[in-house]
Simulated assay, not measured.
Amino acid sequence: MNLPLWPELAALYETPPDLSSCPLYYVHVDERDTSITLGFETSRLPDRPRAEWEGERYDTVRFFVVFTGADELRIAGIATEDPDARDRTVDIVVTDTGRQRVSVTSEKRSITFSASASTVTQIHIYLQGSL
Score class of each variant (00 low, 15 high):
T89L: 06
V66F: 11
E81W: 14
L127M: 08
Y126P: 09
E31A: 14
E52Q: 12
I123Q: 05
R109T: 10
T95S: 12
D47T: 01
T95Y: 03
E14W: 05
R32D: 11
V66C: 14
R99C: 08
L45I: 01
R50L: 08
A85P: 04
P16F: 03
T34V: 10
V90G: 07
R32Q: 15
D30Y: 05
S20N: 00
G39A: 04
F40W: 02
S118G: 13
L3G: 11
L38V: 07
E56H: 10
L73P: 02
F64Y: 15
A10P: 05
A51G: 03
S110E: 06
D59N: 01
G77I: 03
A10W: 10
K108H: 14
Y26Q: 06
D71Y: 04
H28W: 13
E31C: 13
A10V: 02
W53L: 06
I125A: 07
D33T: 15
D18I: 02
Q122M: 12
Y58S: 02
T15G: 04
D33C: 09
R74W: 10
V102I: 13
R48W: 01
R32H: 14
I111D: 00
S114V: 14
I111T: 02
R109N: 09
L24Y: 00
V65R: 09
A70M: 04
P17W: 02
W6V: 03
R74A: 13
D96Y: 11
G77H: 00
E107K: 08
G129S: 13
D59W: 02
